[in-house]
Simulated scan of single mutants.
Amino acid sequence: MTEQEIAAAAEILAQARQSGMQINGLPVTPSSVAQAHEIQDRVAVLVGEPIGAFKAGAPPEGEPTRGLIETRMIRSSPAHMAVAEVPHLGVEGEVAFRFIRDLPARSEPYTREEVAKAVAVLPVIEVVSSRFHDPLSRPKLEQLADCGINAGLVTGPELADWSHLDLPKLQMTFTVNGETLIERRGGHPTDDPIAGAVALANMMRAGVKAGQIVTTGSWTGLPFFKPGDRCTVRFEGLGEAEVVFDG
């Protein structure tokens, strides 16, 4: 993408966010993770909403990625979200981390131990929706430019001392309208939730701030629901997060 194409993509996505109108796709697909991240950052400036959280991916092989989540779309559980806000109604049950101290940008990468000491842990539901009509049909880098097709975050209770938890092996239960859809031990896509927080701390050019949250990968896949549905994810020893989609 040229500089002009990056700027045009950011303008299109910003307008879609502000108007609530969905688009078919971008005129040009980003050719790198860095370009997709640059589009996200420009959209955030154009829209002018504070960023309170991130989604982060840290594949064992591959480039780490992140998506910005607006503060206004972070809700405490039990939460209600309107279909008008999140029209695709996708849900991902996840383990997230809240930074309890600033981790400013620096040349030396932060270690796992440093990041682990700087975060509390909490259960969350990432609500998935997009500025695209059919988001899963778009190229992965277009989805990433649209903040990883994130729409919001529902946060459960926070645990400051989580050293006794074996996070990759937590017992997870996912229920919809009172019916258990998934019940198993483990299920994080890389079996390493904290890796996403480490990756984020080392990706952000301006560092991360105390109070910001990073969610680190779905334990439930990505099911889509309908107005009126109530979705709950529960992690043994950690707690639960719940969202209801209002029509």
Results as ranks from 00 to 15, higher is better:
Glu158Cys: 03
Asn150Val: 09
Ala197Cys: 10
Gly187Asp: 10
Leu167Asp: 05
Val127Ser: 01
Ala116Val: 09
Leu200Ile: 10
Ile213Asp: 01
Met204Gln: 13
His188Gln: 12
Ser130Lys: 08
Ile194Val: 15
Glu183Phe: 02
Ala199Gly: 11
Arg184Glu: 15
Ala120Glu: 05
Phe174Glu: 03
Ala199Trp: 11
Pro123Asn: 06
Asp192Met: 05
Ala201Met: 04
Asn177Ser: 08
Ser129Met: 05
Ser130Gly: 07
Asp146Leu: 06
Pro123Leu: 08
Lys140Asp: 14
Ser137Trp: 01
Arg185Ala: 11
Arg138Tyr: 02
Asp134Pro: 00
Trp162Ile: 05
Trp219Asp: 01
Thr216Leu: 08
Ile125Met: 06
Asn150His: 10
Gly217Lys: 11
Ile149Ala: 03
Val208Phe: 08
Glu183Lys: 15
Leu159Asp: 00
Val198Lys: 12
Ala118Met: 10
Leu141Thr: 06
Val208Gly: 04
Ala145Glu: 08
Pro135Trp: 13
Ala210Lys: 12
Val119Asn: 07
Pro168Asp: 15
Ala199Asp: 03
Thr180Phe: 07
Leu170Ser: 10
His188Trp: 12
Phe132Asn: 06
Gly217Val: 13
Asp161Tyr: 04
His188Ala: 13
Ser129Gly: 09
Ser129Gln: 02
Ile125Gly: 02
Ser137Val: 00
Leu122Lys: 00
Met204Glu: 14
Val128Tyr: 01
Leu165Asp: 03
Trp219Arg: 00
Trp219Gly: 00
Val176Leu: 08
Ala116Glu: 15
Lys117Thr: 08
Gly152Ser: 08
Thr175Trp: 00
Asp192Gly: 04
Pro168Ser: 15
Gly196Ser: 09
Asp191Cys: 13
Ala197Phe: 11
Ser130Cys: 07
Leu181Cys: 02
Ser137Gln: 12
Glu126Cys: 09
Leu144Val: 00
Gly211Ile: 11
Thr173Cys: 03
Val124Asn: 01
Leu200Met: 10
Glu179Met: 04
Ile213Gly: 06
Ala199Gln: 11
Arg131Phe: 08
Val127Lys: 04
Trp219Leu: 09
Ala197Leu: 12
Val208His: 07
Pro135Asn: 14
Ile149Gln: 01
Leu144Thr: 00
Asp161Cys: 05
Ser129Phe: 05
His164Leu: 00
Gly211Trp: 10
Ser130His: 06
Leu170Cys: 12
Glu158Asp: 02
Gly187Tyr: 08
Val214Gly: 01
Val128Lys: 03
Ala197Asp: 10
Thr173Asn: 00
Met203Arg: 02
Thr215Lys: 06
Val176Cys: 13
Asp134His: 14
Pro189Asp: 10
Arg205Cys: 00
Lys209Gln: 13
Val119Ser: 09
Leu181Thr: 02
Gly196Ala: 08
Leu153Asn: 02
Pro189Arg: 11
Lys169Val: 03
Thr190Glu: 14
Pro193Val: 01
Ile149Asn: 13
Glu183Arg: 14
Ser137His: 06
Val208Glu: 04
Glu142Ala: 12
Val208Ala: 06
Ser218Ala: 15
